[in-house]
Amino acid sequence: MTGGAVRTTALAIGPDGPERVGHHLPEEVPVALSYDGTTHAVMLASPTDLEDFALGFSLSEGIVEAPGQIGRIERVDHPEGIEMRMWLAPGLGARLMVRRRAMAGPVGCGLCGIDSLREAARPLPPLPPGGLRLGADDVGRAMAALARAQPLHDATRAMHAAGFWTQAEGLVAAREDVGRHNALDKLTGALARAGRDASGGAVVVTSRVSIELIQKAVLARAPVLIAVSAPTSRAVAAAEATGLTLIARARGAGFDIHTHPDRIELTEVPHDA
């Protein structure tokens, strides 16, 4: 396998004694994101779909508001890693320098190196109420569709994925990465490059839900976020405040709705105890 995974061997210890086995391991590469010749962030990421990643990161971080505000994206490979060079529309570079912050850190941290704690609680545009309605069965269908679209995870058992699902189209797009934040940025970039946002369906992720994933989903205009694992309390509060329907622990036919259950059609809703 090439692109995102490498072949290696390990000594497996089992009931029949040690044996040499082969594995595919996910690649983890430093990816520098630079604007107008200045590095803004260095993230550890999978070296796949990096143009989607660069665009999605730029949108979710508020560096640009539309794909057309990036004039060009160029990949440059270095011995130490990969640089994604972007050139901004006139005027945006000066604004970026005002709010520039360092973000070098491990894939598990979305706020590493942050200069201002205010960025952790940055205001988010509220989502319009109503709109999308999903059936309870749709939640399981969306998760099952994403599970079938993870070739790197199937090979390595060590990748995250983010997907976009609609009732009419099924799984529209999916992206994988060693970092859950990176996977969602890649998905956002892929949708933007296709000329659409996530307002007509649900974003589906294979991870726990932290505040950063809520921020990225809301900025992608997704009305529903479905996750296989649990959310943090801060994530639930942010989802409630912005009008996002947050569904967690989605496994098989079961799931928890933490916020705004009106978008999910249920046969009966119990009263609070």
Rank of each mutant, 00 (worst) to 15 (best):
E74N: 09
R221G: 02
L171K: 12
P123R: 13
R148Y: 03
E169V: 13
V21Y: 04
S46Q: 04
L213G: 01
A104W: 11
G105F: 07
L124Q: 12
P126V: 12
P15K: 13
G17M: 04
A227M: 06
G81Q: 01
L246G: 05
R75Q: 14
G163R: 04
M84Q: 01
P129K: 11
V236W: 06
I114S: 05
L225H: 09
A253P: 10
D272K: 14
T232E: 10
A202T: 08
R133K: 13
L92C: 02
L191N: 07
E74Y: 02
H78M: 06
A158P: 09
R157P: 00
G170W: 10
D197K: 14
R101H: 10
F164D: 06
T2S: 11
P129T: 02
G179T: 11
T2P: 05
I73V: 12
E240I: 03
G195P: 13
L50N: 04
P15W: 04
F57Q: 09
P223W: 08
L124H: 11
A239I: 00
S199P: 05
D185R: 11
G113W: 01
R101G: 07
T206I: 07
D154P: 00
A190K: 08
I63E: 00
C112D: 06
T206C: 02
S34Q: 10
R20T: 10
G108L: 10
R193D: 02
R263G: 01
V203Y: 10
W87L: 02
A227R: 08
G91P: 01
A217K: 08
R101M: 05
D77L: 03
P128Q: 04
A120D: 09
D154V: 02
D272P: 03
A250T: 08
N182I: 06
D197L: 14
V64R: 12
D16Y: 01
R263T: 02
G179I: 06
F164W: 07
P30H: 03
P18A: 12
Q150K: 15
T156D: 09
M1A: 14
D138N: 08
L134T: 01
R180L: 00
G14W: 03
S199I: 04
A54M: 00
A147I: 00
P90T: 14
I214T: 05
M103C: 15
A222F: 04
L96F: 14
G3L: 03
T245F: 00
I73E: 04
L59V: 03
W165R: 14
G4T: 05
G62Q: 10
S210H: 15
A217R: 08
P67G: 09
L266Q: 12
L187N: 10
S210G: 15
G108A: 11
S233H: 13
P123I: 09
D185A: 12
S58P: 05
L152T: 01
V204E: 00
D197Q: 14
A217I: 02
V224H: 11
E240Q: 13
P126W: 10
H153T: 03
G22A: 13
L44V: 11
G131Q: 09
R101F: 06
G81M: 02
A230G: 12
L146C: 08
I247M: 09
G93V: 07
L117D: 10
H153Y: 13
G71L: 12
H258Y: 15
D185W: 03
A253Y: 05
S229K: 15
L55N: 01
A10L: 15
I114T: 13
L111P: 05
H23Y: 14
D272R: 14
R122D: 04
S116G: 12
M159G: 09
R72D: 07
F255C: 12
A239L: 10
